[in-house]
Amino acid sequence: MSFISSYIHIKDKEVWKDNTLIYSNTEGISNNKFYKLLYKQLAIKYMKFYKMDELSKLGLLASEYLLEDRTLTSEFKAEDIGIVLMNRQASLITDIKYYDTIKDATNYYPSPSVFVYTLANIVMGEIAIKNNFKGENIFYVQEHFNAELIHNHTERLLQRGSQQALLCGWLEVEEDKIDGFLYLVENSAIGLKLKHSIENINILKNQ
């Protein structure tokens, strides 16, 4: 039996953790300013953060909030901690940013540091590097949040004993919208002690 022990939802300019609003900003600031404020609030020192694209910033911040009071690598082997993510637009917002560096033949300077983020799964690499998680990774691109797909994959990994803890969720960034939803699934009932089920995942996501 597996459980959801904690969740985080960064939605528009609010941060919710386990049903509690822990941060909100109503000043109508840009996404990037908002990420910077969260970064400062979390008081992490991680220079690489500023180099990341929006999707990776959102994923990293969400994972930092989610794991604020946990060090998973001291509880489980690095290779037993996995990440299962999904979104709608893959890396489109960064694709457009990269395309801007090449679309004009007279101003053609392809940017390697933007190009590297034109893959949606890079965010899993960023979370893995920051936390030293060497487990299973998968990134799905779906039109809508598909709790069943994520749930079933996660359960298969837990049931065959290959993974002990998994960060799962949905990370979507649009120009004026942020929707970062991450939850932690593990075999022991701690924290929220919520049964890992498709229904419960959907309840948390829609809260």
Binding site: R88, L92, L119, N121, N137, I138, F139, Y140, V141
Partner: peptide
């Protein structure tokens, strides 16, 4: 149509399949 899920959906529809197609994009 620039969205990966949209491509997958159109492809599965071509074959008369109405299930939600899965897209896996991991470099």
């Amino acid at each position: 149509r620039i969205q990966l899920w949209s491509s997958a959906q159109e492809i599965s529809r071509f074959y008369g399949n109405n299930n939600t197609a899965i897209v896996i994009s991991n470099a």
